[in-house]
Amino acid sequence: MNIFRFAGDMTHLISILVLLLKIYATKSCSGISLKTQELYAIVFVARYLDLFTDFISVYNTVMKLVFIGCSLAIVWCMRLHRVVRRTYNKDVDTFRHYFLVLGCFLLALFVHEKFTFQEVLWAFSIYLEAVAILPQLVLLQRSGNVDNLTVQYVFFLGAYRAFYILNWIYRYLTEPHFGRWIASVAGLVQTALYADFFYYYFISWKNNAKLQLPA
């Protein structure tokens, strides 16, 4: 494992911990898109089915279990927790995320490495992860005034994507047979979605001001 991959995994983990911390400490999920969280839960469950069939390392297994567990816990909190669920911005979180699920599944049926149950679900999870942030970005933009922890959450998620791209470039250059075309193209799309957010993030950081997204 190279340093970029590790940094990517850690920023991914931090983003989820920041989100859990926000929900736990403030007993509020305002500014967080339940749609995006549901999509991530689907992504992790679909991709990590290989927990039952393949063993790669203790690190991989533990991280997969943590990601599945945390994403399900977040969805549970936002939907069912007595206090937290009342803070959910239901009216602005209106993205039709079922269309994303359907579109990604159809794409995975046609574009995959092998036509097996696990490979199609793997491709599906890669495509869905690429677009899963969209409801969250739309919610950020609509609500305009966003709290700091939510901004940090999106920032760390974006950082994870950026590190993974560096990781793929590194692996492509150092491993003779490394080819991950489906994931690399989807990863580029996903990272590009964050470009706008990062632009405004750095502007607010430079001016030492609160993040403001244009309406």
Binding site: D9, D50, H177, F178
Partner: peptide, 10 residues
């Protein structure tokens, strides 16, 4: 295999 196709990643 798993490593060549990047499925050793998360």
């Amino acid at each position: 295999d798993k490593q060549d196709s990047g499925k050793d990643e998360l």
